[in-house]
Design a protein around this nucleic acid. Structure first.
Lengths: 197, 197
DNA sequence: GTCTATATTACGATAGAC
DNA sequence: GTCTATCGTAATATAGAC
């Protein structure tokens, strides 16, 4: 299934294994049996560390959300011209997404069947909304085009950024996080034809 | 769960119900019981129409794939300057995606647990590859910027387009498919700052 | 075409020994 | 902290009546 390991688990180290399997098979498609095989311990041993499958999900998406909301607290995201703050947040989103790849991947894939999933989706919408406000301010400043509706543009830009989880692989991949961030910022602000900055 | 209906089902009309539920709960998160409740008939009646859950998935993703590959057969996608063909395919992808929304949504979410899922992922990769070739040709023509790697740019553009399934709602939504297609083409080729065409 | 009833397997979770 | 054994439930799928 995935890599097995021995030693002795902490909730944290078990989480890393679980999130990997969740991302391979989907959360719903992963059984406790799958997790136990991947972790190399029995099902009941997993229950010694966590209360159940949903706790693993909650820990994982919390980590992702903390990373994303942390961006908005950083100084360059809070002060300065809106378009500059937007560019900073865009770049940092790519960096957080690649740094916390498995956790953010799981966050972006929850469907809403359980309470934890619905909570995660709600928090995510909150984050999206705050970035949308930033784009709105940049448009009001006249620093980004006004002919595309703010809400629509935000959704499309988020779509591009979030899609990175579908293919980015940190170890052994030919692409560094910074290169991807550069490309995203260039593409989002300048487009395929290239910008005249 | 979702809308129930009576009459008498065909594999086709049953598919529409099933795909809706699959997209709400995820394929793995959907049981035959869920489907029977949504369709308003018993589980065993569903088995009268289809061999099982996986056949419904296969029919759904086939429809999505047919729509996408159909684009590449259309004349404007085959003749003319590469950048123009690319723009045409980009626009048509948005149109097919919104027209066949539930089917494409399901296609984009399969994870690879079953044979059908792996087959769908393989076919999808094939389509992506063909569009990547188009972008490559446009870059060789000097019609799109060459400072962003073709493979990377393709992935990001696909990410933006595919993300539309996450929020687009045809009936009652304030956005028409054509408006979204316009915005995507503008954003992909011109960027947030706007293009000097 | 649809139903009720049921076979069979897999699931999440617990009990209790070591 | 880990195990084996098992409980109760829910899953996919089938049998056979109407």
């Amino acid at each position: 299934m995935t890599t097995a390991r021995r030693d002795t688990y902490t909730p944290e180290s078990l989480l890393a294994v679980a999130v990997t399997v969740f991302n391979e098979r989907g959360y719903d498609g992963t059984s406790m049996e799958h997790l136990s095989k991947a972790a190399g311990i029995s099902k009941s041993s997993i229950y010694h560390h966590v209360t159940g499958k949903e706790e693993l999900l909650r820990r994982a998406v919390s980590r992702a959300l903390d990373g994303l909301f942390g961006i908005l607290d950083e100084r360059p995201a809070r002060v300065g011209r809106a378009v500059e703050r937007l560019e900073y947040v865009t770049r940092r989103m790519v960096e957080v997404l690649t740094a916390e790849l498995p956790y953010v991947t799981l966050l972006l894939r929850v469907r809403g069947n359980t309470g934890t999933e619905r909570w995660a989706m709600e928090r995510r919408r909150e984050f999206d909304h705050q970035v949308a406000e930033l784009l709105k301010a940049a448009a009001a400043d006249g620093d980004v085009r006004g002919d595309i509706e703010v809400r629509l543009a935000t959704r499309l830009v988020f779509g591009m950024i979030n899609s990175i989880v579908e293919w980015f692989r940190p170890e052994g991949g030919e692409l560094e996080s910074a290169e991807v961030a550069d490309a995203v910022v260039e593409l989002v602000f300048g487009g395929l034809r290239g910008a005249d900055r």
